[in-house]
Amino acid sequence: MDTRKLYHAPADCPVCGDNLVTTSKGCLTCGTQIAGEFASCEFCALGEADLDLLKVFLSSRGNLREVEKFLQVSYPTARARLDAVLVKLGLAPAGAVAEPADEPAAADAEPSEYGDEHVVAETPEQQILARVARGEISPEVAAQLLA
Results as ranks from 00 to 15, higher is better:
117 E>T: 00
118 H>D: 00
99 E>W: 06
93 P>E: 14
106 A>W: 02
126 Q>T: 09
114 Y>I: 01
123 T>Y: 05
129 L>M: 13
128 I>Q: 10
81 R>A: 07
108 D>S: 06
127 Q>E: 13
116 D>E: 08
105 A>H: 04
83 D>E: 15
86 L>M: 14
101 A>F: 09
125 E>S: 15
94 A>F: 10
93 P>I: 00
124 P>S: 11
121 A>I: 03
109 A>D: 03
83 D>W: 10
127 Q>W: 08
114 Y>W: 12
104 P>Q: 03
107 A>I: 10
95 G>T: 05
91 L>Q: 11
81 R>D: 03
90 G>L: 12
92 A>L: 15
92 A>K: 15
103 E>Q: 10
99 E>I: 02
85 V>S: 06
114 Y>T: 00
88 K>W: 03
110 E>G: 04
97 V>A: 05
107 A>L: 15
127 Q>Y: 11
114 Y>P: 04
90 G>Y: 07
90 G>A: 07
95 G>Y: 10
121 A>P: 04
117 E>G: 12
129 L>A: 02
97 V>I: 06
99 E>C: 10
97 V>W: 05
102 D>P: 08
103 E>T: 15
93 P>Q: 10
96 A>T: 03
117 E>Y: 12
83 D>L: 13
121 A>D: 02
88 K>P: 06
97 V>S: 04
114 Y>M: 05
121 A>Q: 12
91 L>N: 04
98 A>T: 09
94 A>Q: 12
113 E>T: 01
91 L>S: 06
83 D>P: 10
120 V>H: 08
83 D>K: 14
115 G>I: 00
104 P>R: 04
106 A>L: 15
106 A>S: 15
125 E>V: 13
107 A>E: 10
84 A>G: 12
82 L>M: 15
122 E>F: 11
112 S>A: 14
100 P>I: 04
83 D>N: 14
121 A>N: 01
100 P>E: 00
111 P>L: 07
120 V>A: 14
116 D>G: 14
81 R>K: 08
90 G>W: 03
105 A>L: 09
107 A>P: 07
124 P>V: 02
100 P>S: 08
108 D>R: 07
120 V>D: 04
110 E>M: 13
129 L>V: 00
92 A>N: 07
123 T>R: 05
116 D>L: 07
